[in-house]
Design a protein around this nucleic acid. Structure first.
Lengths: 347, 347
DNA sequence: GTGAAAGCGCTAACAA
DNA sequence: TTGTTAGCGCTTTCAC
């Protein structure tokens, strides 16, 4: 049987014996220790030697073995991130922001999707821990079913939760102030003359969802807005469509439909359009997250803007701090949201 | 200074000395080799010993050290994927499909975004190679500027290109038949009575883009459709808006605006709506990719559906084959696209 | 400033 | 079936 290098030779026509630090050391006429020091810049090396080593490494096309280095240093310079979905533009944007923030700290991102499945999420967490990532950023799939796995992972290495969090444990968390967000939404709707509002959300399985429902209820009551119904499904366009179907079937629409995320709201808008219900004339609709497509819907969607860049920066800051000093006290940062008013609630 | 374990103790109240295979072996009263065999299932182990080891591992909360294992086996069971953008829903969907397909093969995905920047892309590739991923799936940022880095990476390990590819090298590729796609689009438009069409695309920097422009030109000519203009910018909503602005400013609109991707088309639709241009009455508009939001626009968008699931499955199949036998001959698979007709080209 | 040597945690030979 | 042994490639004392 051929060696991998020989096989690769046959395939590409280029011989690629995996070059090691030993090869570089031999060619440069120094020890492997010196090569390591020269290339990592960890310890000073005399200029001529540095030159030699650099040349040798370049000549051989040496690119190091991160695995060996990680084993020796007990550090992978990699952070794992677990999100419920990478198809949801909110999480996509969050992931991009986190990756950007990590880069500045010299860290790489290892991305996993839990598909909103706590069992798969637990598996991802075990895998990340086994892979020896230095820390984890997670938006848990579920408020209670995710708790054990998240707590276990947090016991193994630094972990920060973003957007959502699980109950019953203390760890760093960064997200948005959901109560303040719903206050913004309901005060805006009250200003538009809404006297009744329905909330369309996901089944109450995670922190954000619960806080958003609670915020909705509180502020509606405070502003004297009636709440004929609260519909719970999941965070998807399809659920928005179905919920709207139910409202239409039930007969009279409320003055406003408040959605727990933009995907739901997009489904609501689409179904309204199909049914000949004119937004905002017949009903006001709001979303949550401010994903890019919320500006493109028919009509464009009034929604709560989440400062994901800030969330990401803060999450990475907390993680870096925990990497340096695991003894730190867990922090909880609720950032201030803002309201983006578009045509779905105004003319 | 405290050890990391001691620090974690202070932080979480739980002592977590990283438990190794040695600890498990000692507790189970067997050798580390036996533990390895028992836990990996690579070699048969007697039932009582298996039981012992499993218990010991569970008791200690052993989760293995993937880094050490990878170093020893020269295998990480990880595949790197590099895409131009994770904000573009087409790539998001592709990533999800690839991740899904990899899971079935027992492989993990390490995702990187090149942000359409060849320099960043090269850095990602170097990083993936240094991290010893077993293979790479890439959609290159640029047709020529990405070439060196991609060819280099392909010389180091199995690599398959998806969607786009770089010129001047042979490697596995899986994508869609762009010429056939444009044929579908133009024949559909001709059937709707279009006698002129403008193509709005990205500056011709990668294979898909070039093939789509070429396909557009060829089939338009064949069908007797006039081509007053071809506008090149980038794959974004904003460019769709700007291009439409130019068309409107120039005066008379063509019968149809064909877009090289859905994001561009969404921008076109949005700007048309703002300008009071009614689609499809005043102009027909088509997209490419069939991202989820193309069904939600105003009006819903006629577009080319990309079979990303198939692309992903095929890409993983090729990669797995190359993992097993690097001597295989590079394959190029152009899958057949389909047209999804919606209101932007019909009543 | 540099080299020799030890060893990170694991698994693949090789013996027994 | 199980244990012993030898490293995978790298970084880091510890000497010089």
């Amino acid at each position: 049987m051929m060696s991998p290098a020989a096989q690769r030779w046959a395939r590409t026509g280029v011989a690629v014996a995996r070059v090691t630090i030993r090869d570089v050391a031999d060619l440069a006429g120094v020890s492997t220790a010196t090569v390591s020091r020269a290339l990592s810049g960890a310890k000073p090396v005399s200029p001529p030697v540095l030159e030699q080593v650099t040349r040798a490494a370049a000549d051989l096309g040496y690119s190091g073995n991160g695995i060996a280095s990680a084993l020796r240093r007990s550090r992978t310079d990699t952070v794992g991130m677990v999100v419920p979905s990478i198809a949801n533009p909110f999480f996509t944007a969050l992931v991009e922001s986190v990756e950007h923030a990590l880069q500045a700290a010299g860290l790489q991102l290892f991305l996993c999707s839990s598909r909103s499945d706590p069992a798969l999420e637990a598996q991802r967490l075990r895998s990340l821990v086994a892979r020896q990532v230095d820390g984890i950023v997670i938006s848990p799939a579920h408020g209670t079913a995710s708790a054990d796995a998240v707590a276990w992972a947090a016991g193994q290495l630094p972990l920060v939760q973003v957007d959502r969090y699980v109950g019953g444990m203390s760890s760093d968390w960064v997200g948005v102030d959901d109560d303040a967000a719903l206050r913004l939404v309901l005060e805006h709707l009250a200003g538009r003359g809404a006297r009744s509002a329905v909330f369309v959300s996901s089944t109450m399985t995670n922190s954000s969802t619960e806080l958003r429902v609670a915020g909705f209820t509180t502020h509606a009551a405070r502003l004297g807005i009636a709440v004929p119904d609260v519909l719970l499904g999941d965070y998807s366009i399809d659920w928005g469509r179905e919920a709207t179907g139910r409202l239409l079937a039930a007969g009279d629409l409320p003055d406003a439909v408040v959605c727990a995320d933009d995907l739901i709201a997009l489904g609501v808008l689409q179904t309204c359009a199909e049914a000949g219900v004119v937004v905002p004339r017949d009903v006001l609709v709001t979303g949550f997250d401010d994903i890019p497509y919320s500006a493109l819907s028919n009509p464009p969607l009034t929604t709560v803007h989440q400062p994901q860049d800030q969330i990401a920066v803060e999450a990475v800051r907390l993680l870096s701090a925990a990497l340096e000093d695991p003894t730190g006290i867990p922090a909880r940062h609720a950032l201030t949201p803002s309201l983006v008013v578009r045509a779905s609630t105004s003319r």
